[in-house]
Design a protein around this nucleic acid. Structure first.
Lengths: 112, 112
DNA sequence: GCAATATTTTGATCTACATCAAAATAGACT
DNA sequence: AGTCTATTTTGATGTAGATCAAAATATTGC
C-alpha cells in the first residue's frame, strides 16, 4: 500500500460520457499515448512516452485522457504512472477500444 | 442515370485516415448526424436531420464528415442526400462503426 | 423566365484548446 | 536541509473551427 496517491478527478464508470471519450482520443497526440500505453507490457510513466510536444503540453493531454476516463494515473516516487482503463472501457463501450487500437495501428499516427 | 451529380472531395478507401475519421465523429453534432443516418431506413436529405444548429453550420459538418470518408453525398433534385459509407468503413476499420453506434446509443447525445 | 425550396458560400465573430516557456511543486536520496 | 529528477501550474500566445447571418447558387415547377 501507500504505493502512491490517487488523482481524484477520474470519472466512475457510470459517469462515462462517450462524446467526451471520443474527443479525448481524437487528438493525434492523445491517440499516440493510448496506443503506446496499450502496447506496453507494464504501466508507463509520463516521461517514458515518445511524444513530439513539450512536457507541460503532455501533462495537458494526460489530464484530458484521465478526465474522460480513458486512463488511470497514480504517483510512484517522483514519477506519475499511467494505466489504460481497459476493463472499464470494455464494460461501458464494448468493442470500442479494440476497434480503435486496431484502426490506429493501420494508419500512420505520425505523432511519434 | 443523371440521378444527381457526385461531390468530388470524398476520399477513396485507400486514403482513409483514422485520426481524421475520429475527429470527424468526435463532434457532438456530427455524431448525431451519423447516428440518425445509421438509424434511417433510407438515404436522408440534409434538411431532414434534426440538428440544433443553423443550416449553414450543418453544411460545414456534412463537409467534415464527407471529406473524412464517413458519408457519401449526392444531389437528388433540390436536395442533397446523405449515405453512411458502412461498407467502406467496415472494410478499413473493422468493428469501429458498430462500436461507435452502440456506444453512442448508450450515452445521451444531447445534440438532437 | 419567374417563383419557390434546398443548400451552399462568403464573411465575420468568438471560443476552445494546443502549444511553449518559466516558475513552482513533489518525492527520493544524500 | 539541499540537490536532483519528474511533473505540474501558471501565463501568454496563436490557430483551428463552430457558429450565425446574409447573399448566392441549384433545381423544380408554373
Amino acid at each position: 500500500m501507500a504505493r502512491g496517491r490517487e488523482i481524484a478527478d477520474e470519472p466512475e464508470v457510470k459517469d462515462f460520457d462517450f462524446p467526451r471519450v471520443l474527443n479525448a482520443i481524437a487528438d493525434p497526440i492523445r491517440l499516440a499515448i493510448v496506443t503506446q500505453l496499450a502496447a506496453a507490457p507494464n504501466d508507463v510513466s509520463c516521461g517514458s512516452f515518445i511524444l513530439p510536444v513539450h512536457p507541460s503540453t503532455a501533462t495537458h493531454h494526460f489530464t484530458a485522457l484521465r478526465q474522460a476516463g480513458v486512463i488511470h494515473q497514480y504517483y510512484a516516487g517522483t514519477s506519475r504512472m499511467n494505466v489504460l482503463r481497459r476493463d472499464d472501457l470494455n464494460a461501458t463501450f464494448p468493442g470500442f477500444l479494440d476497434a480503435v487500437l486496431s484502426a490506429a495501428a493501420k494508419t500512420q499516427t505520425s505523432a511519434t
